[in-house]
Amino acid sequence: MRLVTGFPGFLGSALVERLLGRSDEPVACLVQTQYREAAARRAATLTDDAGVPRNRIRLVEGDVTDPELAVDDYERLRRETRVVYHLAAVYDLGVARPLAERVNVDGTSHVLDLAARADADRFHYVSTCYVSGRYDGTFTHRDLAVGQSFHNHYEATKFEAERLVQAAMTDGLPATVYRPAIAVGDSRTGETQKFDGPYYLLKLLLRQWPVAAVPVPLRPSATRLNVVPRDFVVDAMAAISAREESVGEVYQLCNPHPPTILELVRALGRAAGRRVLPVRGTARLARVATERVPGVADALGVEPAALPYLSQPTTYTDENTRRALADTDVRCPLFSSYADRLVAYARDHLDEDTGAMV
């Protein structure tokens, strides 16, 4: 049995869809009680769309913050689990440290413990490129602790969680680590469950017409934002996780040709029907204003913790990812090729925004 955490979240749902098509093996999804109904609806949709029996997805109520995952029958789960995909995490850039540690660090430790007790054949862990923190330089799949500082508790705790996974790998756990860059909607449909990251810029654009002023760093053509669509991340994970030679490896699922900040805001502006006026050198000022002046962040639709990424000095490499995908048709598309679909979907669904990274 394959165990997936992080369902019915943004990436977890798409990954389960891919796993249903891989074999007839059941997929167990660890689901928090408050998300049980949403998970049941999502599971029914996925199985019906795939034309497979609904019992192919088994929902297991639990919580990664509990040492035994708060499940009714931990021993049964241990006995039946063969492969683990651990995606559950708090993806909120503004998360408080205690919650981030409880979910991202302790939760990963507990799922690792289950995998060890189950003597699992494989452990797949979803980290993030932003374990790099604010590293000034090129960050490769071989890097982790490079003396970096962190923008927020999300980055810091994902870094600590990956350290746990890599330590377990060193001790013999057959694990693989995936580091997505900033994930946005599906490149074909624009579908997403969250409107953060670049969507904060889009919200700001949509609040202005016909000209939209956007805060950008002093050199917006020298800074890049590494954005990847959900379908690329999940397709890459599905393809790489099927390879035996991926055991013990770290894969950065990033865009080898990321847009500059200027290219990104102009692509969003074109898709939104706005003429963009980049206001250079104001990204830092915008962060201070949104953090310290009441009401500014809500009025602009911007999360203050997202603004430092407009001047992120880190470059990410993906050479081993491209090698692993060379004989597949999985490629990361250029942002400009699907920006219009992201904007179209967002226009229709922004009122459903919960403000959380799922």
Score class of each variant (00 low, 15 high):
R224T: 15
N226H: 05
V227G: 03
R230Y: 00
A236H: 07
A236S: 09
I240M: 00
I240T: 04
A242L: 05
E244R: 15
S246M: 03
V247H: 13
V250W: 06
Y251S: 00
Y251M: 03
L253Y: 01
P256G: 05
H257E: 15
P258N: 09
P258H: 10
P259A: 05
P259V: 10
E263I: 09
L264Y: 12
R266G: 00
G269L: 09
A272L: 06
R275L: 11
V276H: 04
V276L: 06
R280D: 04
G281F: 11
T282S: 14
R284N: 08
R284T: 15
R284D: 13
V288W: 15
V288C: 09
V288M: 14
A289H: 08
T290F: 08
V296E: 04
V296W: 07
V296S: 09
V296L: 12
A297Y: 08
D298M: 05
E303P: 08
P304Y: 06
A305Q: 13
A306P: 02
S311A: 15
P313E: 13
P313H: 05
T315G: 07
T315Y: 10
Y316M: 05
T317F: 09
E319G: 03
N320T: 14
T321L: 02
T321C: 00
L325D: 00
D327L: 10
T328R: 02
D329W: 07
D329F: 00
D329Q: 13
V330N: 01
C332N: 09
C332F: 01
P333L: 09
P333V: 13
